[in-house]
Amino acid sequence: MREEILKSSHFKELVKSKNTISLILTLLELILYFGFILLIAYNKDFLGQKIYGPVTVGIPVGIGVIILSWVLTGIYVLWSNRVYDEKVLKIREKLGGE
């Protein structure tokens, strides 16, 4: 059974799709956070600009990093629940419903 799984194109495709999604989302998170840090380090003036009354650009940006991080985990979980789990189920069924 082990050989069967390893040889099956379904399994290879499963591993590849999951690694791709994980990699893309990890990169997005790294860009999001370190982009924020670098913006603070190199362009404080931009973040310090007022956009609405006393509210500066930095406030929605900082809160936005928190919310977007959560949204990214949501995208991952949604993809896994809808797509990944289906694929796993198919591979398991092919093997005689283990």
Binding site: S22, T26, L32, Y33, I40, G62, V65, S69, T73, Y76
Partner: peptide, 19 residues
């Protein structure tokens, strides 16, 4: 505002744990 920078830093590890 500087306090917010810390708060953000403590959150961003969680997506990494997820992915």
């Amino acid at each position: 505002y500087d306090g917010l920078i810390y708060a953000v830093g403590f959150l961003v590890g969680w997506p990494i744990v997820t992915f």
